[in-house]
Amino acid sequence: MLNTIWPFFILISIFFSFISGNIESLNESIYSSTKSAIDVVITLIGSTALWSGLIKIVSNTRIITWITNIMNPIIDKLFPESKKNEKVRKLISMNIISNFLGIGNAATPIGLKAIDVLNKENKEKAHMSNSMMMLILINTASIQLIPTTIFAIRQSLGSNDPFRIILPVWGATIIAAYTGIVVLKNFFRKRP
């Protein structure tokens, strides 16, 4: 997608700066943009490393078991078709927990495995089953306990209070995820 948008942005900027006479500031931005990108990266490294390290500790402790226990009733509600399939349930809960903790590179391989198992169970190959759609929906909703990347960026830009946004983030994620689930369940769910 960026392969189309990126050149379009650049071309339209050049074209527009010719008409509007902003050519000087355009030139300046070409040189300053790389510098500011590198500045951000340098400061980003520190805080991203810190949070990835802390999250890694979490994924090795009993906190994981607690979260799994909390998750069980939620999974029953969202994936009623998979109630009997222990293997899928475990994969789904691991996928959701990894998302929840913000370990995206752990979440995706587990989620793909879960989709694969669900797809094998799916009788109508031309359509996704309810469970498959729900799993992908949850992965697009990104319910995250600690939005580590955004914390890191805020820290790197010298925010007075990088964590100030955590409650709005939780609120907005939950509302967004809930909306997605309601829309999928009520408007599109196929009758079993």
């Binding site: 942005f9 900027s13 943009s33 790389t34 500011s36 990108a37 990266v41």
Partner: peptide, 17 residues
């Protein structure tokens, strides 16, 4: 990616569009 995006967004902004 950051370099690429900063580059294009910076151009967009400075062009006045």
């Amino acid at each position: 990616t950051l370099i690429g995006i900063f580059f294009s967004i910076g151009m967009l902004r400075s062009s006045g569009i």
